[in-house]
Design a protein around this nucleic acid. Structure first.
Length: 229
DNA sequence: GGTAACGATTGAGGCACGGC
DNA sequence: GCCGTGCCTCAATCGTTACC
């Protein structure tokens, strides 16, 4: 192999891992946190559900995130707005195609309706599975554990009030924000504590003169302070 | 038919209390 | 002290009912 300084790389002395990226796409579907799985067209695990993933291609991918974005395009026919790396998993028993497989796992929270993903390369169909019941899909490889990691990471962020403002509408009421967080966390939140923590972190600002009118008392509309600075 | 009174509902906020 | 829980009050609106 020719290196950038003109020298030639000697043959490797050590076996290298089978290196992949996996992308866990999360969304709220009917107010439940769900993960997008694709049904595999090819062995191994033909016909089983898995999170979209693919091999890192050093001839195509400038870095790991670029690899994840390419995989999302190829498998789902979508461009993802943002990705966050969860971490990496590796081991000898992870993938029957290789003696040792390494996966770098990314996640993204997306609007399932707006995403409009369609099955791409090596996928028969796509489906949104409830994140808390993903084991019922009998996911291929160790993808059940990877989904659990992605869900835990997202919920830990929401718990810390690192809110997914890119996932929210431009303006929202405190009730709508709390409902969204509760749906992502899969549990109810105390209104008083939630609002006090929001106020302490100074995350939101009221939109002057903007109220959400309905059958009852109009609610104040807010927007993310971070989006306006 | 028009109007007032009342209850139900929901958003917003406050406060006391207990566990850690 | 911090945080969650539970309960309360106040505001605003809608629907129902009673009264004129």
């Amino acid at each position: 192999m020719q290196l950038s300084d003109g020298t030639t790389q000697p043959p490797t002395l050590h076996p290298m891992p089978f290196t992949r990226v996996e992308v866990a796409l999360l969304s709220l579907v009917e107010n439940r946190l769900c993960v997008l799985l694709g049904k595999r067209q090819e062995a191994p695990y033909k016909g089983r559900w898995a999170i979209p993933g693919g091999v890192v291609r050093i001839d195509l991918d400038a870095d790991l995130e670029a690899a994840a974005r390419r995989v999302a395009r190829e498998r789902l026919n979508v461009s993802l707005p943002y990705l966050r790396q969860i971490g990496a998993v590796g081991g000898a028993a992870r993938d029957p195609r290789a003696p040792w497989a390494l996966s770098v796992v990314y996640r993204a929270l997306v609007d399932a309706q707006a995403l409009a993903a369609t099955p791409g390369k090596r996928l028969e169909t796509l489906g949104w599975w409830p994140a808390d019941a993903v084991q019922e899909a009998k996911p291929a490889f160790d993808h059940g554990a990877l989904v659990a990691q992605a869900v835990d990471a997202l919920r830990a962020e929401v718990d810390r009030l690192e809110l997914p403002f890119g996932f929210l509408p431009p303006t929202f009421t405190l009730g709508e924000l709390q409902a969204l967080c509760e749906a992502l966390l899969g549990r109810r939140l105390d209104k008083s504590s939630f609002r006090r923590r929001l106020a302490e972190r100074d995350l939101l600002e009221p939109v002057p003169g903007e109220m959400r009118t309905g059958a009852f008392r109009p609610a104040q509309l807010y927007r993310a302070r971070s989006l306006t600075n």
